[in-house]
Design a protein around this nucleic acid. Structure first.
Length: 469
RNA sequence: GGCGCCGUGGCCAAGUGGUAAGGCAGAGGUCUGCAAAACCUCCAUCACCGGUUCGAAUCCGGUCGGCGCCUCCA
């Protein structure tokens, strides 16, 4: 097992990972609220999550990964007013909230599958764990950390002496409620709902000891993390925006209920920006994976693109940058595709130090840009020296990269007969030195999506990849 | 008002004390009938000012600029 060093938001330092009971690592990551398509910014976070898991596994840990699907609607504000996101979507699409959840869950999974994001070992829906949430809420009420009002059960943030520790909130300096009027039933503006009671029109309601209602947003993560991973988990991650409210509240309600540390390490992914601005619908920069596909980008190009910056940094999304990523990935694929059989076994001497560099890079807080630079150096060296015996290492690295390189190798590029015959025809023309004819044939074949390359070993035919002309 | 992040070549970016990784784009070359692929070469002194140090992109102070959060948000 190799030591892995991770930046812990809780300490604001890079720390050596010390799991509770190695080699097991319990890992909880926040999943989507399924009321709309996920955009490329969301997807960056899921690629990050998957990378965390892959790196830990590469380092020799046995990861148990749990992710939630938030399929309960929550208020768009923490107020009583405000529409429920799920309900809004349901009305918009003339479906029940359940159908909306099902629909977008399916789309979400299709997207992450396309990105080679491994499915978490446990993918849990909030609506399947109402019992656990009620139990946890009851526990908090019993312990005096929560109070019951006509509008709902609220967590009392003053019951948590170090509330705000994750985000290092300066409670006294904050202008609580400056922008949103807190609910009058709340004793303190930062208190948050564990169970809502006063939304009779809400489409999803369950019975509870306090009356019919539905859970608050934060409670599901605590309840499900504890159910599947125990009261203290090794690692918890999510988007950087979750630090001040969602994760702070998870910590508060979990630790008040158990008296134990909720998560030992907290990791947060930075935003993917467009024009140096966050993604939001109102700015019209809400891109989905299918939007990218429509522009000719391969989903895995996007995955590779995510590796061009450190996960904590904002990553600026531009067409040029994504094209660069796709181009580079195609170069890697070409290498894999055309390396001779002899490259599959054995290893060039220059590979060993690169293996070490690769492992060191990923284990140092997931330095993927550096890891990828090592990969490219290896390929360049293999091409340069014409000593291609690096595929074993490359496929090994791909356990972390998740770029599907092995699949590229085993792809059977079955040539349609019409293409095959024209390739043969072109070969004949070339022998006759009829280059006008030969070039015309090459163009024809290209138009149908096949690239011909003349090599000393003969003509090579490969499918044209997107964005390639 | 509070908390936090960032400013490295045309673009995306790594590097956090020893004289700037990598990719894409661009220029020139090798190879090729021409291409393609591949390889080689070239292309930045790190927003600005001051300080610490033998030495700073990297530490400290300040200035300017950009961004995020404090309200649902990856």
């Amino acid at each position: 097992m190799r030591d892995v060093f991770l930046y812990n938001t809780a300490s604001r330092e890079v720390e050596k990972l010390e799991p509770l009971s190695p080699p097991r690592v319990s890992y909880y990551s926040c999943g989507p609220t399924v009321y709309n398509h996920v955009h490329v910014g969301n997807l960056r976070t899921y690629v990050f999550t998957d990378t965390v898991r892959r790196v830990l596994e590469y380092a020799g840990y046995d990861v148990l990964h749990v992710m939630n699907i938030t399929d309960v609607g929550h208020m768009t504000t923490d107020q009583d007013e405000g529409a429920d996101k799920m309900q809004v979507a349901a009305e918009r699409e003339r479906k029940s909230p359940w159908e909306v959840a099902e629909h977008y869950t399916r789309l979400f999974l299709a997207d992450v599958d396309a990105l080679n994001v491994q499915r978490p070992h446990v993918l849990c829906r909030a609506t399947d764990h109402i019992r656990e949430m009620l139990d946890l809420t009851a526990r908090l009420v019993e312990r005096g950390c929560a109070y019951v009002t006509p509008s709902g059960v609220y967590f009392d943030t003053t019951a948590m002496p170090d509330y705000g520790k994750l985000a290092r909130l300066n409670l006294s300096g904050q202008e609580d409620g400056a922008r949103v009027e807190p609910h009058p039933d709340k004793r303190h503006p930062r208190d948050f709902a564990l169970w809502k009671l006063d939304q009779p029109t809400h489409a999803m309601q369950w019975d509870s000891p306090w009356g019919r209602g539905y859970p608050g947003w934060h409670i599901e993560c605590s309840a499900m993390a504890m159910r599947f991973l125990g009261e203290t988990i090794d690692l918890h991650s999510g988007g950087i925006d979750h630090i001040p409210v969602h994760h702070e509240n998870e910590i508060a309600q979990s630790e008040c209920a158990t008296g134990k540390t909720f998560a030992k390490v907290w990791m947060h992914a930075g935003f993917l920006t467009i024009g140096d601005t966050k993604i939001s619908k109102s700015l019209g920069n809400f891109f989905t994976l299918s939007d990218l596909a429509g522009k000719g980008f391969d989903p895995l190009s996007f995955r590779y693109f995510c590796y061009t910056a450190k996960y904590r940094q904002p990553l600026n999304f531009t067409d040029q940058a994504l094209r660069a990523a796709q181009k580079t990935l195609q170069g890697i694929r070409n290498f894999v595709r055309y390396a001779p059989e002899s490259a599959l076994s054995g290893e060039e001497p220059f590979v060993a130090p690169l293996r070490e560099q690769f492992a060191a890079a990923i284990c140092h807080d997931l330095n993927m840009p550096q890891a990828v630079a090592v990969v490219l150096e290896m390929i360049r060296e293999a091409n340069r020296t014409r000593e291609p015996r690096v595929l074993e290492a490359l496929f090994d690295f791909d356990r972390v990269l998740g770029l599907g390189l092995r699949e590229v190798r085993s792809e059977t590029t079955a040539l349609p007969p019409t293409i095959r015959s024209r390739v043969a025809e072109r070969e004949e023309a070339r022998v006759q030195r009829d280059f006008a004819r030969s070039d015309a044939l090459r163009d024809e074949v290209l138009a149908e999506g096949w690239i011909l390359e003349d090599t000393p070993e003969g003509v090579r035919v490969r499918p044209r990849e997107r964005e390639e002309s």
